[in-house]
């Protein structure tokens, strides 16, 4: 089992830059034709269908689930390395899109403006919490993956607290939501800011 994970991790690290950059350009092509709303719908469908293509999971206890999550065995941590700061507060150290974003900016130039425009559309029409299109994919995937997991026979739920994009831009949950989310996460506002100094994303599972 450990050997399999190591093999998997090896391939995660060696993902080819052409594939990532081509995928971004494919999405930009969709935005050219269908606008921000069309691209937003496409990203949501992309992430949802990915989660649905993965097997369902059930855990007897919350501890079993968190252990699986941290080991990278759960579908929710397939693409990102997750650490539990508290029982319900999860931290992603490195954005799973960072490598693709770096390759894009290194080989092509500025990240196309449309990725921020679609994020603005998502923040105003779906829920506020994303920095760019990459966050839309990631957060939609987490929500759809959570729906495929039960812990002690109860469906898992996901909420977003804050995210830092590879370009350094930051998106924190709106002030009116923050106290409730922080309480659910079991962290303070100071904890949140400390985590954001050297991590990419902080989110809640409950």
């Amino acid at each position: 089992m450990i050997e399999e994970r190591e093999i998997h991790k090896e391939y995660e690290i060696k993902e080819n830059p052409l594939v990532d950059v081509a995928a971004y350009l494919f999405l930009e092509d969709i935005a050219d034709k269908q606008g921000a709303a069309g691209m937003n719908n496409y990203l949501i469908s992309l992430a949802t269908s990915l989660a649905k293509s993965m097997p369902e999971e059930e855990y007897k206890t919350w501890e079993d689930f968190v252990e699986s999550l941290e080991k990278g065995e759960s579908i929710i941590s397939t693409f990102e390395s997750v650490r539990a700061k508290t029982n319900h507060c999860m931290v992603t150290h490195k954005c799973p899109f960072e490598r693709g974003w770096k390759e894009y900016t290194k080989r092509i130039g500025d990240f196309a403006r449309v990725h921020k425009e679609v994020a603005d559309y998502y923040n105003s029409t779906v829920k506020p919490g994303v920095n760019d299109t990459q966050c839309i994919i990631c957060q939609t995937f987490r929500a759809a993956a959570a729906e495929r997991i039960t812990v002690a026979k109860k469906r898992l739920k996901y909420a977003q607290l804050a995210a830092v994009a590879p370009d350094g831009s930051k998106k924190i949950a709106p002030d009116e939501w923050k106290p409730i989310l922080l309480e659910k996460a079991g962290v303070t506002n100071t904890d949140l800011n400390m985590v954001l100094r050297n991590n990419a994303c902080i989110w809640i599972l409950y």
């Binding site: 993902e15 594939v19 990532d20 269908s49 990915l50 693409f79 990631c138 995937f141």
Partner: peptide, 13 residues
Amino acid sequence: MLDVALVSLIQDM
């Protein structure tokens, strides 16, 4: 992540 998502969309596309 994006590459795996795209593969899962090929059928639909």
